[in-house]
Design a protein around this nucleic acid. Structure first.
Length: 827
DNA sequence: AGCACGCCGACT
DNA sequence: GTCGGCGTGCTC
């Protein structure tokens, strides 16, 4: 929680001290002494290896330099410098600083989130046999003897290996005892996790003239025909003797790799290793963009707002071609040699978008997200740091990439709640952070959505954002026909076919007969979400959370969707022993099964977290659907994102009510967004689509707005509610979450915060209260919320007070086992 | 985060 | 006694 990242003037003739950020959640930086020889080589933003604690080494980030030695302790020396050219520039450190102070977390939290794992190094302890170890006259325990014997066999062992070998939980005591007896040594090794990829290149030894080559051919001809083949192939194809990729060359000419190796050993061929990228995509034929008149107008008005240095909100209904407007600006940025950050909520779901971007921008497109491996992520990070003009498609963590020539940020689906990181710290909202980032880099920023967040649209209404609207669907496609189906009516008439209304079934079958595809959304995973005892009302709950266990039929187990705990299904009620257990509710598995019974001939697939695991699982499901191998896809809200199919006849929502009943002030907003987004999946391209939403409350105003596709009306109603009850965007929320393994500790801690905060902030403090889910992973949770006015409140002062309270809170011993989290702008 | 140190309780 | 478990304190 630093306040100033600017570097004071320093004298590089004098001794330098370096403040270093370490990648864990510690409330401060650590100061190290710079060896005098490095005075001109050190700079903020470099990674430095430092000793920390008794014998560990870590890579930290050099935060700033000074000439002032610390007063309270003697600083240790920096161990080594990892980057000649700083990995991060001043602008990135400023951004880190802003994140830490705005979101009330430590710089170490930011560092941990910002750097790809491959760039965060930690040392590992190695244990070796002492070269002069004398095993005579020493008493050894069994474990000690075992370890010494093992060390005779290998050079060194890691702590994990020793743990494995001895079966001991605590390995330090025996290592220490062996060390004292002079039998072992320990050392720390810093392992570089990132490994660049190299490729072997070959050419014919350039100093061989024709005569020498002739001799070689003569010599080889008799005994090594394969080697002659290699040389003939090389000279035939590459008379100018350019470097050739060894593997490709061998493959292309179907040569013997042993022969190539032999020639290298005889120094007839020469070899070199070159660094290659893992991430460069193949070349694509890039297509030209052609914008519609409406899109052209959107471009013009966006440019006008950017002139005024405003972020732009592009509100365009699904299918209006928002992405073409984005593409236009991306192209302009690339033409000016700038870098572009394209943020998306769930990156993995955007196969189609990536393909489109590649078609337009070819090899300038990079992608990073959590399913990419360590090395690939490091390469994207380094590419971005190199300043190469490119478009990076990323999920929320893309804001941490070290752009040096950032010209444009695109925040697609800006309303999506996955832009907010909830756990661990930094608990940041990537959309908001991106706006600050754009400001820092003096870059343009455009947010896009068919269903903007209340915050963004309100900002647009206030004139803080420029508002650009796209009202028409691109091409000839028209808006879908959205119908509500009254479940209460049908249930009363006992007309339902399980979870399906007769009309929905009719349409599904009609579509199927015509060879058209449909998707069905049920926003619950698994088979059933609740198992209840009909005798006493007990229901199956997770052992460590206050959550009902979901039954998964495919695995025949119960699973807690929050902590992942699984167990065998109950035979009897744990409370009364009755075996009258009932399954309540419907998840995607059960819907899939029911539908299979109703339409046995249809090809049905399921799209949820369960079936989309793995790097290529979505890919496969999306392609299967695209290729027409599937008639009906059943899925959770995942199917509402990023899928764009051409033969979609029907979108069905099995149960809209749960969406509206969420105990959160944003539940209506979420419901409207989700339903509108999934409805938008239908009827693109030629045909008019059909959307059927099953609900018990067909009169609900939010559903009416969905049917009318009237965002503005929805916004106007909802914003009135927010104002009336003083919720964002009319105030700013800071949530304080207090948790502990003992309920009384949470209770007491929360009460203490309540009393103190109310003294300072009075009526602005709500709680402490037991949240909707009050126990998670064995922690009892309490929550307080501070509602701050948008104007006239010194936010920084409030945050300083909170930090002061936090420090005071932990001064009390009994509070040490209580965990306190701040969440600024919670979702 | 990772590790030491100290205390307690349970056993080869 | 030896080992594991856990709380506490500290790292420049």
């Amino acid at each position: 929680m630093e306040t100033d990242a600017s570097v004071p003037t320093i004298d590089r003739q004098q001794t330098l001290f370096a403040e270093v950020i370490l990648p864990f959640s510690l409330a401060k930086t650590f100061t190290y002494r710079v060896p005098h020889d490095w005075n001109n080589a050190v700079d903020p933003g470099q990674r430095v290896v430092v000793p920390f604690g008794k014998n560990k080494f870590y890579a930290g980030i050099l935060w700033r330099l000074s000439n002032r030695p610390p007063e309270a302790y003697a600083a240790k020396y920096l161990h080594s410098l990892l980057d000649e050219i700083p990995l991060l520039q001043a602008i990135h450190l400023r951004f880190w600083n802003w994140l830490a102070s705005y979101y009330l977390c430590n710089l170490g939290d930011v560092m941990a989130a910002a750097l790809p794992a491959g760039l965060k190094l930690a040392s590992e302890t190695l244990v070796m046999l002492h070269p002069e170890a004398d095993l005579n006259n020493v008493e050894l325990s069994d474990h000690e003897l075992q370890l010494v014997e093992e060390l005779h066999k290998t050079e060194a062992l890691t702590l994990d290996e020793i743990q494995e070998i001895t079966g001991l939980k605590h390995v330090f005591p025996i290592i220490k005892s062996l060390y004292i007896k002079g039998l072992v040594l320990t050392g720390e090794e810093i392992k570089q996790r990132f490994k660049p990829r190299f490729r072997s290149m070959i050419q014919i030894q350039p100093n061989l003239n024709e005569e020498a080559l002739g001799d070689i051919f003569n010599k080889l001809e008799k005994r090594a025909p394969k080697q002659v083949d290699v040389l003939t192939a090389f000279l035939g194809d590459h008379p100018d003797n350019e470097w050739q990729d060894r593997l490709k060359f061998i493959k292309r000419h179907q040569l013997s790799s042993a022969a190539v190796k032999a020639l290298i050993e005889k120094e007839i061929l020469t070899e070199k290793e070159v660094r290659v990228d893992r991430i460069s995509p193949e070349e694509y034929d890039t297509q030209q963009l052609k914008l519609s008149v409406e899109q052209e107008q959107a471009v013009t008005s966006t440019l006008a707002f950017w002139q005024e240095r405003k972020p732009v909100l592009l509100h365009g209904i699904t299918g209006s071609g928002k992405s073409f407007v984005f593409f236009h600006f991306i192209q302009k940025a690339l033409e000016q040699q700038q870098q572009v950050l394209y943020l998306l909520p769930e990156i993995a779901l955007t196969v189609q978008l990536v393909q489109k971007l590649r078609q337009h921008f070819g090899s300038a497109v990079f992608i990073t997200h959590s399913r990419f491996n360590e090395n690939e992520r490091v390469e994207v990070f380094q590419k971005v740091a190199s300043g190469m003009p490119c478009v990076v498609i990323a999920a929320r963590s893309g804001i941490f990439l070290p752009f040096v020539k950032l010209g444009l940020l695109v925040i697609d689906e800006e309303h999506d709640s996955s832009y907010k990181q909830y756990d661990p710290a930094p608990r940041y909202q990537a959309r908001d952070a991106a706006i600050y980032l754009a400001h820092l880099h003096n870059a343009h920023i455009i947010l896009g959505s068919a269903t903007p967040s209340l915050e963004s649209y309100h900002n647009a209404q206030l004139g803080k954002f420029g508002l650009v609207e796209l009202d028409n669907r691109y091409g000839d496609s028209s808006l879908p026909d959205i119908r509500l189906i009254n479940l209460s009516d049908l249930k009363r008439k006992k007309a339902m076919l399980g979870s399906f209304s007769p009309v929905l079934m009719e349409e599904l079958e009609a579509g199927y007969k015509e060879g058209l595809q449909s998707i069905l959304m049920q926003n619950r995973k698994g088979y059933v979400p609740i198992i209840t005892c009909t005798n006493c009302g007990w229901n199956a709950k997770c052992v460590s959370c206050d959550i009902s266990m979901t039954y998964y039929k495919t695995h025949d187990h119960l699973k807690c969707n929050y902590c992942g705990f699984t167990q065998k299904p109950h035979r009897q009620c744990t409370s009364c022993g009755s075996s009258a257990l009932e399954m309540e509710g419907f998840g995607t598995e059960r819907i899939e099964e029911e539908l299979g019974n109703l339409m046995p001939e249809a090809r049905i697939s399921r799209f949820d977290q369960d079936t989309t695991r793995g790097k290529y699982a979505h890919h496969r499901l999306v392609h299967e659907f695209e290729d027409g191998e599937v008639d009906i896809m059943v899925g959770t809200q995942m199917i509402s994102k990023g899928l764009d199919f051409s033969h979609l006849h029907l979108v069905g929502v099995i149960q809209a009510d749960q969406l509206l009943n969420f105990p959160n002030f944003r539940s209506f907003e979420r419901a409207f967004q989700l339903l509108t987004q999934v409805a938008g999946r239908s009827g693109r391209r030629e045909q008019k689509g059909l959307v059927m939403i099953q609900t018990h409350k067909p009169d609900h105003p939010v559903l009416q707005d969905v049917v009318a596709n009237n965002y503005l009306h929805f916004y106007e109603q909802e914003i009135l509610e927010r104002e009336k009850f003083n919720y964002p965007p009319f105030c700013r929320l800071i949530e304080i979450e207090i948790k502990s393994k003992e309920e009384i500790d949470s209770e007491r801690g929360a009460a203490q915060w309540g009393v103190q905060l109310k003294q300072e902030f009075g009526h602005r403090v709500l709680g402490p209260e037991k949240p909707y889910i009050s126990r998670l992973r064995n922690y009892y949770i309490r929550r307080l919320i501070i509602k701050l006015e948008k104007d006239g409140v010194n936010l920084q002062a409030v945050k300083s007070l909170l930090i002061k309270h936090l420090i005071d809170f932990y001064k009390i011993k009994a509070n040490r086992k209580v965990i306190v989290h701040f969440d600024v702008d919670p979702v």
